[in-house]
Amino acid sequence: MNSGMTIIVKTVTRITVWMILLYGIYIILHGHLTPGGGFAGGVVLALALLNVLLAYGRSYTFQWLRLPWLEHVESASALLYLVVGLLGILWGGTFFYNFISKGSLYHLLSAGTLPILNIIIGLKVALSLFLVVWVLAEARTSKGDAA
């Protein structure tokens, strides 16, 4: 069961997973310019990771992705989000004040803290969603555990 799916699925996944990841990163980075943003991009990233999990099976995936590391990054990203908000208090006096220069409209590096927040949200959503699905898939639903 840990061996994953057939060679066809594995090969296709190996090629496409990078494209999906790239697309997710694109959506996250352009969150302040186009529809999308941290959540939508994060979901795309999570789906890419889930593709790997489905195609290659559990043991191979977790050689590639370290689980405790993922958990740490996931809770750290929530803390980082709060830290950005707190920096707003430090610089501008209010929580989540946009303290970085807004730049000019339609540029990738503009809108102050928004791209940073989008990246943090993307990371958080991707890892949380992946971990949630993984935890739910781990649960045993066989007989023998009845109370």
């Binding site: 949630v132 935890v135 739910l136 649960a139 045993r140 639903t141 007989k143 555990d145 009845a146 109370a147």
Partner: peptide, 16 residues
């Protein structure tokens, strides 16, 4: 939904 699904899985483990 994730929360409720997790609860449903646990309920199934307990009650079959």
């Amino acid at each position: 939904t994730a929360m409720v699904v997790a609860l449903a899985i646990r309920l199934f483990q307990k009650y079959q």
